[in-house]
Amino acid sequence: MTIEFDKNGYALSSGYMSVHRSDPETKRWLGAHNEFMSVGTGLAPNSYLDGPKGDSGDSYAWCRDSDDADWCRVEDHCGKTAYGKATRAKMEITELGPIPDTHTLLAPISPFDSWNEQAQIWEPDSTAEQQAKLKAAKTEQSTRLANANQQIAILKPAVDGGYAKPEHKQLLADWQRCRYELTLVPEQLGWPAEPQWPAEPEKVI
């Protein structure tokens, strides 16, 4: 049924008709609905007699334009995950529109990738990867050295004082040897990517 409206936008008759709606905030087209229109009433806010023409296409949505005069295609990446070009941090896209220039939909392959803006791709950053491995190896070495120092600090006074258990004399020597070998680990060919740590002796505590 076709219902005509006067120049002020009020229905000249009553009946059901197809009305297109848009989201009040995003202006996204919500579809067409059959609504009952009473004579002398007008369309509800964000309701229109005309609808979008055709399919919006992939990654696009129909929205009402800024003048509220027609429908236009707007980029729609809502629900997708974008990645910061500088930080590689994830961000879920929740708003209509183009992807921010600071982000990309391409996921980095590793935590050490850097973004090539000209080529529009992620590239491996071997320097950053090497620095991360070196930092991790040094942290592990410091932890192991601190543990060795703790065991030696417990055993040495007893051995020097002559009141240590017989087996603790050898244990002190084992820990001192372990501590020395820990200082040599950076000289290995596999440092810092694949360090081979010396076996730790039995702990006193």
Rank of each mutant, 00 (worst) to 15 (best):
Y10G: 00
C78F: 09
N147H: 12
G57A: 05
E140G: 05
Y163P: 00
G162I: 02
D67T: 15
Y180K: 03
R177W: 14
A158R: 04
P100D: 03
K53M: 14
A199D: 14
G54Q: 05
I109G: 12
G51A: 09
V204Q: 02
A137W: 11
Q118E: 07
T104A: 07
W175N: 00
D55Q: 11
M91H: 13
C78N: 14
D6G: 04
A11H: 05
A128K: 13
E167R: 06
G79H: 13
A148G: 06
Q196A: 10
V74N: 04
D23I: 09
D67E: 15
Y180W: 04
L184Y: 02
N46L: 06
C63H: 07
S110T: 15
K133C: 02
P52A: 09
V204N: 01
E117L: 04
E181Y: 13
R144T: 06
W175Y: 04
T102S: 14
A136E: 15
E200N: 08
K27T: 12
A137Y: 13
S14K: 02
P24K: 02
W122L: 01
M91S: 13
G79K: 09
M37E: 07
A137M: 09
S13C: 00
V204F: 01
T41Y: 08
S126Y: 05
F112C: 07
G57M: 06
L96Q: 10
D68P: 00
A146R: 02
T127E: 12
A69G: 07
W197N: 08
H103L: 11
M91G: 09
D67I: 11
A136Q: 15
L184Q: 12
C78V: 15
M91F: 14
K135A: 15
G51H: 12
L145Y: 01
P108H: 07
N149H: 03
C63W: 04
K53R: 14
R64I: 14
H77Y: 15
E181W: 10
K169S: 11
L172S: 03
V159C: 01
A89M: 15
K7N: 10
K80L: 14
Y48P: 04
W191F: 08
W62A: 10
Q141L: 14
V159R: 00
K165T: 01
A132D: 15
A128V: 11
Q196H: 09
K90E: 13
I121L: 04
A89K: 13
T143Q: 12
K7H: 12
A199F: 10
L182G: 09
K203Q: 11
L106F: 06
N46H: 11
G79D: 14
E117I: 01
W197D: 06
G40F: 09
K165R: 03
A69N: 13
